[in-house]
Design a protein around this nucleic acid. Sequence first.
DNA 1: TATAAATGAAACCGAACGGTTGCAAATATA
DNA 2: TATATTTGCAACCGTTCGGTTTCATTTATA
Lengths: 106, 106
Amino acid sequence: MRRDVFQAIADPTRRAILVLLATQAMTPNALAEHFDVSRQAISKHVRILTECELVKPEQTGREIYYELDASKMKQIDQWLDQFRKIWEDRFTQLDKILTNLKNKKS
Amino acid sequence: MRRDVFQAIADPTRRAILVLLATQAMTPNALAEHFDVSRQAISKHVRILTECELVKPEQTGREIYYELDASKMKQIDQWLDQFRKIWEDRFTQLDKILTNLKNKKS
DNA sequence: TATAAATGAAACCGAACGGTTGCAAATATA
DNA sequence: TATATTTGCAACCGTTCGGTTTCATTTATA
């Protein structure tokens, strides 16, 4: 167990599932049609996504529609925050170089 | 092999390494002091981070300083983009509910 | 009510993961 | 030059991962 969001999005199939669910809620069966692995394999992925609350089940009769809970993905966004400053600095650094180059030219 | 950024940040130790390198470049030895696993284990993590270009080696003598290449982390940020709209919509949706509630009250 | 459909859970399997220990290579230092 | 330091690599090991197949359960339908 011990599932977290970072581990959840590590798998490409799970990332694809999340993208699919971004447009509309879907049942495991409907999801499985988009992949060439078994329905049960998809079910296991969905289970992992549910465990870390990236996805929420909505039962209607015998069907279960899974819908995205994008808010949990903010956790990743927050983690990225501490690096965002750095890669923005890279831009300003590049900007500086370009400015220098320009000054040299003129 | 087949290493990508998402898999790289899935491991908590590797995420911690990235955070450490965000402040300053470090050697594997220096990095290892911050964890209670062997130097070789850290070396393996650093290798993975290097493979997907999240980190860049800078050799000086027999020491190798690894420095963060935060720009590669933009890849994660870009992937998050497609969900950012959704979790922002959640906010406006909540806003709508609150407005309705307010209107009912008055 | 008998049958079909949708789903989850369990058992199993090979591959990958994260860790260890041991060793070799390169560089600094006595 | 002999020795110590820094590092990476290889072999090995137990666990986890992603997949499969099989089966049980619940709900809809003929």
